[in-house]
Design a protein around this nucleic acid. Structure first.
Lengths: 270, 270
DNA sequence: TGTACATCAGTGAACGCGCGTTCACTGATGTAC
DNA sequence: TGTACATCAGTGAACGCGCGTTCACTGATGTAC
């Protein structure tokens, strides 16, 4: 049983193959619009089939089960937001890291606002009974990698500040005092309970080695992770309604937050 | 039609009233365990009734519909985590603000880890087709209010740093340089696009007036809001699996983040 | 180029299931006099 | 204290519904010689 005739590339596909690819895309598109109408896990194969004018059993020619369709949607969503982030980071022209950072944050938020249900699918509560397969972790890491890649370019002096990897105490370190008041002074590192950072340092090193080719210092990585969580915390709160009746619309709050994150992460104004 | 006999308080209830209160609690308890087993919106009245050894229609004596049961669970969950936060903040003995802050963050995370599905119910993606009623917003604000109340005690000098409410530029301001290196220097406020902060300043003022009795300065409030979003961003990422294969277990990452948040929020080491 | 066969897309009926909600009913619990 | 009546909790059957998945089937599309 040959899956593809020899010499056949996906570029020169048969009519049947092209039809299959096209309908597969249609199914996912219809499923996405289902998602918009009804929400993540109430997704119904029969409704998708209905929207396409097919009989429900026909979908089984394309996805062996509902979970597989869900997996495809999740991977697509991660890839979509990942590409948005990467594009923003690498956008035309050499811009300073801070501008790229802000652009990435804004682009991610814009995508989330435009695709709230796909956002909820990947960053909301996990769909009960669904276990994400390995295949999602690659696409899922595109956004954090894109964000952290910006930080990798920052020269050592710029992302100042203490980071105690192992000790409970901390090494005071004179960071550069740039334009603007010295703020957020005072130390961290304390109160980690017990050993204080050994596990974390190991995790940071492992991530750096595995995903970043060892090119990013652990303290930069960790700040990037914090900013990553804060960015998505902000977006999730906005989309999931926690700002209702207080900070809605949240555009300016987001800008404020993103500017703060840039500081956190070591990206100065100039 | 009298709802309660005259002179009757809830303390001296009839057997019937006590039975009703007790079974109402049982129903919610069973629903919560349903939640644990299956997840937020797949909650089934029939399954709840089954767990209690009742017939499904019996539940309609206690909750007029499934949505009302869901609302009760949501309010209970907000109240539960709110109380945990308040207790941590006001815990015995006069402790410095920073210690109370850290205690609150840890207590909230501990609650979330112990009740992941209730957490997902209130901080995860909204249940499709369910519209949260007004009655949830009071309980929902207990956590942010508890967090911000800690900040209200911080003397003006300690939570230093510029906050530009209206201008696109920023006023450099020499904050106190406490023990530890000056870090996270550099300005914010820029890049808010256009007017730059007028809406945000208004929202902050309104929230301060409405919920905090005007006792908290807007820049403190805003930092509290940021820390609030970051805290829950962190917890959500942990619970929803974004740290899988990288920062799990996330205990030390959480401690690191929480220490950072304390800085962000103006709470120094000492 | 033409024929014989294999592959595949989509059909339609059926399976067994669980769901939320309604309704008339029965006993038990409470209230008024 | 005792009786007549009202209130309420829980029952059991039924409603109409949508779901995921299976299966044998039909035509159409592709392949080998």
């Amino acid at each position: 049983v040959r899956l593809m005739a020899p010499g056949k590339t996906s570029a020169s596909a048969t009519a049947r193959e092209r039809a299959r690819a096209s309908l597969t895309a249609d199914i996912k598109e219809a499923a996405r619009s289902q998602l918009t109408a009804v929400g993540a896990d109430a997704l119904s194969l029969r409704a998708v089939a209905r929207e396409l004018g097919l009989v429900s059993s026909a979908l089984y020619r394309y996805f062996p089960s509902k979970d597989d369709l869900l997996t495809a949607l999740i991977i697509d969503a991660y890839d979509a937001v990942g590409e948005v982030a990467e594009t923003a980071v690498h956008a035309a022209g050499p811009r300073p890291p801070r501008a790229r950072w802000l652009a990435a944050c804004r682009a991610i938020r814009a995508w989330a606002l435009a695709h709230p249900h796909e956002y909820a699918l990947i960053y909301g509560s996990p769909v009960p009974g669904y276990r994400a397969p390995e295949a999602t972790i690659g696409p899922a890491s595109r956004v954090p990698l894109a964000l952290i890649s910006v930080l990798g370019e920052v020269p050592a002096g710029d992302s100042a500040g203490p980071f105690s990897t192992g000790e409970t105490g901390r090494k005071p370190e004179e960071g550069p005092v740039a334009a603007g008041g010295g703020e957020d002074t005072g130390g961290g590192g304390e109160g980690t309970g017990g050993k204080g950072g050994a596990v974390l340092a190991g995790q940071a090193a492992a991530v750096t080695a595995a995903l970043l080719g060892g090119s990013v210092r652990p303290e930069v990585l960790l700040r990037g992770v914090l900013a990553w969580t804060q960015l998505f915390g902000m977006i999730s709160f906005e989309l999931f309604g926690q700002f209702a009746r207080t900070f809605e619309p949240a555009d300016e709050l987001f800008e404020y937050a993103v500017a703060r994150m840039a500081q956190l992460v070591g990206l100065l104004v100039k």
